[in-house]
């Protein structure tokens, strides 16, 4: 195992960086899309409910199945992987953000409205700051799930640490499987700890 690391550390590093790239791309797009959808949800409660329900159905589709179903539309590779990751994250993010916004004390909201705040001001200056704990909790779940599902995306040539795992499997190379598992597990645990820290900081 150590031999493998010494000889091929550059390959492992490339895979790790590729993995990080996919995860970061997916997270950036996820947050942008989730922010837009959150704004849309402010206009209608019914739309919000329907959207979250639809996303929950989509979320329960296994990742390998969703990747397979998207290949005919968007082909193999990184694009499809990022699309799938962004789709899954919408459920995790919106569920948490909307729940967080709803939990804001109605008295506070009423006071803000009474002060003459518009709906936009209310959201930006009152509701979002008060809901930031729930938002960060959602980001944490989304990030860990993204790191995890991104390994599976290697099955459709998206690259990343999953490539190391699948290659190790094909050639029955135990060192490779171990390093791939170790790195992906460490990445997921590290991401989880990092955002757990951020969560505690917001208190």
């Amino acid at each position: 195992m150590i031999n493998y690391l010494v000889r091929y550390y550059d390959r492992l590093l490339t895979a790790l960086l590729e993995h990080l790239e996919i995860v970061l791309l997916a997270m950036v797009f996820s947050v942008i899309l989730a922010a837009g959808l959150t704004l849309l949800c402010q206009f209608s409660r019914r739309f919000a409910r329907l959207l979250v329900h639809g996303l929950s159905v989509l979320y329960s589709v296994p990742s390998l199945a969703l990747l397979a179903l998207l290949i005919p539309l968007t082909g193999l590779g990184k694009t499809t992987a990022v699309i799938v990751l962004v789709l899954y994250n919408q459920y995790l993010l919106l569920r948490n953000i909307l729940a967080g916004l709803d939990q804001v004390d109605p008295g506070v909201v009423e006071a803000a409205t009474g002060m003459g705040m518009t709906r936009w001001q209310l959201l930006r200056q009152i509701k979002l700051p008060l809901a930031r704990k729930a938002v960060i909790a959602g980001l944490r779940i989304a990030l860990v799930s993204t790191v995890s599902i991104a390994t599976i995306a290697a099955a459709i040539n998206a690259g990343g640490l999953g490539t190391v795992l699948f290659d190790g499997l094909r050639t029955m190379n135990t060192a490779k499987i171990l390093w791939g598992s170790l790195l992906s597990a460490a990445l997921a645990l590290g991401a989880d700890r990092l955002l757990a820290l951020a969560e505690r900081k917001t208190e």
């Binding site: 860990v144 790191v147 995890s148 599902i149 390994t151 599976i152 999953g162 795992l165 190790g168 499997l169 029955m172 135990t174 499987i177 171990l178 791939g180 598992s181 992906s184 597990a185 997921a188 645990l189 989880d192």
Partner: peptide, 17 residues
Amino acid sequence: GALRVVPSLAILLLMLP
């Protein structure tokens, strides 16, 4: 809780060796 965070693909393939 820590086990839950580990990617499922890693857990599956770790069974192999």
